[in-house]
Computed example of a mutant assay.
Amino acid sequence: MSENFYNKPFRFRSLFAGDGLQPTDLGKSISNHIELIIFTRFEEHRFHNDFGCEIWDLDFELIVSESIWEEKFRKSLLKSITDYEFRIYNTEVEVRITEVENVYPLRKITEIKKKVDISVRALIKTTGEKYFFSTALFLSPLST
């Protein structure tokens, strides 16, 4: 495996100017790859149809039970990370749904969104260091 890791998004202007790509460290590279897994829909990757996660299928699903939804998404993400991110092991994924309410008094609108907090804990294979990744996504908004 390559020891060179690059930051995203790629700055093609720098690349075409001959400056090369901006390097990054191992932890940031792993985080970038996990984000790519989260934001990729199944069958979107031409050569690996199972690359990605189930959030795109679950996003518009009517959430009857938040705990069942969280567990389906957690299992999907854990499987994808285990299958495609080889630089970490002992991976644990946690998913939590909360509701966020935004009130816009001038427009007399209340917006309720589902927020999904995702955290990944693991160990880095080459160093044995603890690795932690956290992000949040907003699902389809409801407005009144």
Results as ranks from 00 to 15, higher is better:
T40H: 03
L15C: 12
F12G: 01
L142T: 11
R41P: 02
L26R: 00
R46A: 13
E92Q: 07
S134R: 14
Y89T: 07
I112N: 14
S80E: 08
I38L: 08
T98Q: 08
I88S: 00
L26M: 05
N102E: 15
K114C: 03
N32T: 05
S2K: 04
E111L: 02
V95Y: 04
R96M: 11
R96L: 13
K72A: 08
I55Y: 04
D57G: 13
F12R: 00
S14H: 09
I37V: 04
I88M: 01
I97N: 11
V103A: 12
G52C: 08
T82E: 04
L21T: 09
V64H: 13
V93K: 07
V120I: 03
P141T: 05
Q22M: 08
R121T: 06
C53T: 06
S143Y: 13
A17G: 03
T91Q: 02
P105Y: 15
M1Q: 14
K8R: 11
E94W: 07
I88H: 00
S80Q: 04
S67N: 11
P9L: 03
K130F: 01
K113G: 06
E111F: 02
R87I: 02
L58I: 01
A136L: 05
Y104G: 15
R74T: 03
F60P: 06
T98I: 09
E3K: 14
D83H: 13
C53G: 06
I63S: 08
L139A: 07
V116H: 07
S76H: 03
H48P: 01
S143T: 15
F10V: 05
E61N: 10
E71A: 15
E70R: 06
L62Y: 11
T135A: 01
F133Y: 11
R41S: 13
A17W: 00
F12I: 03
K108N: 10
D25Y: 02
I63N: 08
I81W: 00
